[in-house]
């Protein structure tokens, strides 16, 4: 939508697009595996969000700066190699900072390689735009992804364990909804979020149609 809000600069729009309008998780349904798998606690969600954002920024930066040198036929393979390199870096970095978190995330850090968001952004944005814009796009998409995993992580940890970042919230009489921590809970919470966004969208459309019919 180019005509929305002429006052916001173009760059801001690129950033906000990733956060809200084209949110990679809630709107485009990309990168589902980590979203569902590591959101059983808030700390896991934060680490996952930050690691993915970092890889996204670095790979978008490199892909964008090399975009005129990469031959078209081998571009996907090249992108995957670039991404795999940065993911390996992130993997070792997390291991160095906190062995505990690394253990609880397990193979899912390495699996950032196959997160469709990163390859998707490299292919559809970074390969066609300038370095600055690509980094902004990566920041926006990364923020959108982090918000989404946090949104799931908070609901699942608070309801499923009665804690927030490990601190007890409700006292001892709270009966945790164990299902929220279990795999099934991940599907339910994400489903509920999607329901909410569908409802918002439908309401907005209804209002728009009422407005146009009034005119």
């Amino acid at each position: 939508m180019p005509e929305t809000k002429n006052t916001t600069p173009e760059n801001m729009e690129i950033f906000l697009k990733g956060v809200w309008k084209d949110n990679p998780v809630f709107v485009m349904l990309l990168g589902m595996c980590p979203v569902l798998a590591v959101t059983n606690s808030v700390i896991n969600a934060i680490v996952m969000g930050v690691a993915t954002t970092a890889v996204l920024i670095l790979s978008n930066f490199l892909v964008s700066s090399l975009r005129n040198f990469i031959p078209k036929q081998v571009r996907i393979a090249t992108y995957i190699l670039i991404i795999a390199t940065f993911v390996t870096v992130a993997d070792y970095a997390i291991k160095a900072v906190s062995l505990e978190v690394h253990k609880s995330l397990g193979a899912f850090i390495s699996l950032i390689v196959v997160n469709c968001i990163i390859l998707g952004r490299a292919e559809s944005f970074a390969s066609k735009n300038s370095v600055g814009k690509s980094v902004l796009d990566a920041l926006g998409m990364g923020a959108g992804f982090t918000i989404a995993v946090l949104a799931l992580g908070i609901v699942r940890e608070v309801l499923g364990n009665g804690t927030f970042l490990g601190y007890s919230l409700f006292g001892e009489h709270f009966q945790p909804l164990v299902i929220m921590i279990l795999p099934g809970g991940a599907f339910f919470v994400l489903g509920a979020y999607l329901l909410f966004f569908n409802w918002l969208k439908e309401r907005k459309e209804k209002q728009a149609s009422i407005e146009t019919s009034a005119i």
């Binding site: 279990l182 809970g185 489903g191 509920a192 999607l194 329901l195 569908n198």
Partner: peptide, 21 residues
Amino acid sequence: NVVKGAALTLMVAGILSMAFM
């Protein structure tokens, strides 16, 4: 209408996941 699409699929997946437990 609200439930159609991915939301419904995810809910079904959740129930399936519980069944597989």
